[in-house]
């Protein structure tokens, strides 16, 4: 039950994109079309689950015992960059159809701050292994849901009259703001769930 609360909080209430402000660059970039949004979302779920697990293990079994926690940022970003490359090479060999679908999004993910952000959040919040796994996957799913919802809205912009100065990124941000407002409606769901226990 507490894992369910953690997951729902990460997906809906504290949505990584709309409430925690992580991963906005790819969000503005690839949320124009539905299928690219789905591809990006899947790639993000996959990478975040993998990179959080590895960085969590590195923190616990290498950085803390060796007393070099201050190197966290350097180590984590290198691990993520190397991991993304590795995943790319592995998918190319082992699962070409999946690679075709996700391929172009993978390099973009290295600089997606949601990946590093979630790795760091897992450490700062002192998550256990299972909490880490639930939180990482749920956050990535929340990212995907927000991305797909906004892509659905942005597809309609093509047939809508938008004032010229607001076209492109500007209207994308305003839409994201309204979406974030809609997600505010989920506040309180977590306390209701806790009360059910």
């Amino acid at each position: 039950m507490e894992y369910l609360v953690l997951a729902i909080t990460a997906i809906l209430i504290k949505n990584i994109l709309l409430a925690e402000y992580l991963g906005n660059c790819p969000f503005i970039g690839v949320s124009k079309k539905m299928d690219t949004a789905i591809g990006m979302g899947m790639a993000v779920i996959f990478t975040i689950a993998l990179s959080s697990t590895i960085t969590w293990a590195i923190q616990k079994y290498a950085l803390v015992p060796l007393d070099i926690v201050y190197l966290q940022t350097v180590v984590f970003i290198l691990v993520i960059a190397a991991l993304v490359q590795l995943v790319e090479m592995f998918l190319k060999k082992a699962a070409p159809p999946l690679y075709k679908a996700l391929g172009i999004f993978l390099p973009l993910i290295t600089t997606n701050c949601a990946v590093l952000g979630i790795a760091v959040l897992n450490i700062r919040r002192g998550h256990t292994f299972i909490e880490m796994l639930v939180f990482s996957i749920a956050s990535a799913v929340g990212f995907t849901i927000a991305l797909i919802l906004i892509a659905g809205l942005r597809e309609r912009f093509e047939i809508t009259h938008i004032p010229r100065p607001l076209q492109g990124t500007a209207i994308g941000l305003v839409t994201a703001g309204l979406m974030a407002l809609a997600f505010f409606g989920f506040a309180g769901v977590d306390s209701a769930l806790k009360a059910l226990q």
Binding site: L18, A19, A170, G172, L173, V174, G177, L178, A180
Partner: peptide, 25 residues
């Protein structure tokens, strides 16, 4: 209060971008 919450951040930045586009043209 809306402005200091997450939705306000998106809307505010979006509108400022629009204003910058007008000023820049």
């Amino acid at each position: 209060t809306f402005m200091v919450e997450a939705p306000g951040a998106f809307v505010c930045l979006g509108l400022l971008l629009g204003i910058m586009n007008v000023l820049g043209d």
